[in-house]
Amino acid sequence: MATLLLVRHGRSTANTSGVLAGRLPGIALDERGHAQAAALPDRLAGVPLAAAVSSPLQRCRETLRPLLAARPDLPLHTEERISECDYGDWSGRKLAELADEPLMQVVQGHASSAAFPGGESMRAMQARAVDAVRDWNARVEAEHGEDAVYVMCSHGDIIKSIVADALGMHLDLFQRIHVDPCSVTAIRYTRMRPFLVRLGDTGDFAALAPRESAEPNGAAEVGGGAGAP
C-alpha cells in the first residue's frame, strides 16, 4: 500500500503567542514558519510524490505552497477530515489559562474520554483522521500503484492520533508522541501492518539541546506547541 508523509504545518502566529487556535480563521505562518515551509521542497527533493492532501486551514495551505510551486504537476486535494481538532469554546484561548481547567487533566491522561465544550471529542477527532488516511491510501494506491508516496499536511493532535493508530497505541497514550512544526512523519502502510519509519523529523537536532522545558511536569503541549526556540 501507499507510504504517507505527514507534514505538520509550519510555526504559526498562534504557536508563538501561546494560543490554542483550533479552527479559527486567519491563523497564518509566522516568519519562521514561512522559512520552514520554504525549506520543505529541498527536504523532500529525493521523494517522488503522487499527490498532496491538505487540511483546509490557512496555515497548512501556506506550508504546502512552496512545495507545490516547486512541483507544478503535483495535484493538491483538500480534505476536511484532517482539519484541526474542533476545540470549541477553548479555541482562541491562551494555553497558560487552559492549564488550570479540570478538563486539561483528562486531555493529558485520558484523551479517549475528553470532549471539548462546544466542540468535538478527541475520540471523534482520531476516528475521522484515520478514516481519511485509509481512504486516501486506497485512492493513491489505485491511481499510482502500491509503491506510491503522498504527502498530507495537517496539525499536531491530528498527526499524533494517526501515529498512535499506526502503532496500535490506545488514544490515552497519544500525548507521549511529539511532532514539531513542519516536521515530517512517514508511515508505510502494508497489508499486514503499518510501519512508522520517521517520526517528527525536522532534520535539525538542535531541538534536543538542553533548554527550559516546554512540558512542565511532563504535560503535553495541546495543539502541538511552537517547537524549539
Rank of each mutant, 00 (worst) to 15 (best):
A21G: 10
V149D: 15
A21H: 11
L44T: 15
V163T: 12
R71L: 02
A2Y: 02
A124C: 07
L196A: 13
P56M: 01
V179L: 09
L68S: 11
D131T: 13
A132N: 04
A111P: 02
D86T: 09
F116Y: 14
Q175E: 11
P72K: 08
Q36C: 08
L67V: 06
L74T: 10
M104G: 06
A132P: 01
A132Q: 01
M1E: 12
A70W: 02
M125I: 06
F116M: 08
G22N: 07
L29K: 13
R134L: 06
T78E: 13
A96Q: 12
A138H: 13
L20C: 10
A164W: 04
N137I: 13
A35E: 14
E141D: 14
L208G: 03
T3A: 12
G22A: 08
R139C: 03
R23C: 01
G156M: 00
K94I: 00
L6R: 10
A14M: 01
L4M: 13
H178A: 15
K160Q: 07
S91W: 03
P72N: 08
G145F: 02
G156Q: 12
L173V: 10
Q58W: 04
I177L: 15
R8W: 02
P102W: 03
A127H: 12
I82Y: 04
F205M: 13
W90I: 04
A228K: 11
D42W: 11
S183Q: 05
D30T: 09
F205E: 13
V222Q: 08
G18R: 13
G92W: 02
A14G: 11
N217P: 00
S183E: 10
R43E: 05
V163P: 09
P72A: 03
D89A: 09
V107N: 10
A132Y: 06
S112C: 02
H9N: 07
A148M: 03
M125T: 11
L24M: 14
E221G: 07
V130W: 10
G119P: 05
P41H: 14
Q58R: 15
D201G: 00
S213N: 10
L208C: 08
R8V: 01
Q105C: 03
L167W: 07
P48D: 12
I82R: 06
M104R: 14
A51S: 08
Q108Y: 05
T13F: 00
L5T: 09
H34F: 12
P41I: 03
L49A: 12
A37N: 11
L171Y: 07
A52I: 03
G118H: 07
S154M: 02
M122H: 09
S91I: 04
A207F: 05
G203R: 08
G203T: 13
V222H: 08
R8E: 02
Y150W: 15
L76T: 12
E221I: 14
A21S: 14
L74M: 05
E62S: 06
G218M: 03
V222A: 08
H77R: 13
C60H: 04
L74I: 07
E146R: 15
L171M: 03
S91F: 02
L4P: 05
D147P: 02
W136I: 00
S55L: 01
L208T: 11
R193S: 05
D204V: 06
L64K: 12
E215L: 10
M192R: 13
G88V: 02
R193D: 00
T16F: 01
W90K: 06
C182R: 10
L196M: 06
G109H: 15
R188V: 06
R176K: 12
R193H: 04
E101F: 03
